[in-house]
Every structure is written in C-alpha cells, then in structure tokens.
C-alpha cells in the first residue's frame, strides 16, 4: 500500500499499530477525532520507521516529542542490549511507565531518567536535549561513549 487516506472522517479511539507497519506508505489521518482522547498514536507510526509519512507526526498529543526523544536515546544507546528495558518502545504504553522514566504527575513531562547500571553503551542521541523538563539524569555505571556530533 502506498497511501492510506482516511482524512476528514470521524475516526476516534486507538490507531491500530498495524497502520505503522505499512512499509513505505503515506498515512493520512488528519481531520478525525483521534485527539479527543488521551490515547497516543502507535510509536512506530509516530517515528515513521516503516511508513513513508504520517501526517500527524508533529501532533504533540498523538506523538509526544518526549517519547520520540526517549526512543532515539534507546536506539543510540543500544537499547536492545540493556539489562532492563521494560516497556521501552512499547507501541502504546505511556513513556512515563518505561523503565527508569519518571514524569511529572499531570503534564507527562519527563523530569527524571535513571538508567544507572543498565548496560547502556554507544552514544547519547542529540535529541536528549528535547527532554527540556528533566531535572535529574543518572546514566552512571554504563559504557556510554558519545560520538561527537
């Protein structure tokens, strides 16, 4: 499929994660009612990892920028090799529930990230700078070797 155009309808609820797996497709979902709930869009759809385009990728409700930033950190610091990466990159689970992430109570802003002694290596992604509300960052006792960017 090259194009999934469902704009200008009354779709609501949860966007199926399978939509994010449409290889190379343009997924067009604007002008629906997805934002009426607190549901986020599937992570891989937001990151446009498999689809070519998602027209709501910049919608901060459906695709929280802080979730994207954490996802990039996971990739650059070799998340697949972490000792405990519980719920990281889950399509739907709130990033506030990802292992080591602490959010403010109400606004879902990441205020603390503690991944000490968790097998991180590789580098820190530049998008870590997008976690603008973070107050505590503890990545000690790992093997991170940051590339100059």
């Amino acid at each position: 499929m090259n194009r999934l155009g469902l704009s200008n309808n009354a779709f609501t609820g949860v966007i199926p994660f399978q939509v994010g797996q449409l290889q190379g497709a343009s997924v067009l979902l604007k002008e629906n009612r997805f934002q009426n709930t607190s549901n986020t869009a599937p992570l891989n759809l937001c990151l446009e990892r498999e689809v070519k385009e998602f027209d709501l990728a910049d919608d901060t409700t459906l695709c929280p920028p802080e979730r994207n930033a954490l996802s990039n950190l996971y990739d650059s610091a070799k998340g697949a090799e972490w000792t405990n990466g519980s719920l990281w990159l889950d399509e739907y689970a709130s990033y506030c529930d990802w292992k080591g992430v602490t959010c403010e109570d109400d606004m879902n802003h990441v205020v603390k990230l503690n991944l000490t002694n968790n097998g991180l290596s590789g580098r820190l992604s530049e998008s870590i700078g997008n976690l603008a509300f973070m107050k505590e960052l503890d990545l000690s006792d790992n093997d991170i070797q940051v590339m100059s960017i």
């Binding site: 000490t116 290596s121 590789g122 580098r123 820190l124 530049e126 998008s127 870590i128 700078g129 997008n130 976690l131 603008a132 509300f133 973070m134 107050k135 505590e136 960052l137 503890d138 990545l139 000690s140 006792d141 790992n142 093997d143 991170i144 070797q145 940051v146 590339m147 100059s148 960017i149």
Partner: peptide, 28 residues
Amino acid sequence: FISIQGSIPLELGKLSNLMYLCLSYNAF
C-alpha cells in the same frame, strides 16, 4: 566505537532545568 573519541554532547546544555547530572563510570 573503538576508534572514536567520545565526548559529552553539546545537547545536554539545552537541559536548562537539570539539577542533577550523573554520568560517572562511563567511557566519555
């Protein structure tokens, strides 16, 4: 990685609210 000199990324400087930064025991 072996041949690259790592450094702490400039982007950390954007975290203006950061109170506690612990990067000890890594390979920076």
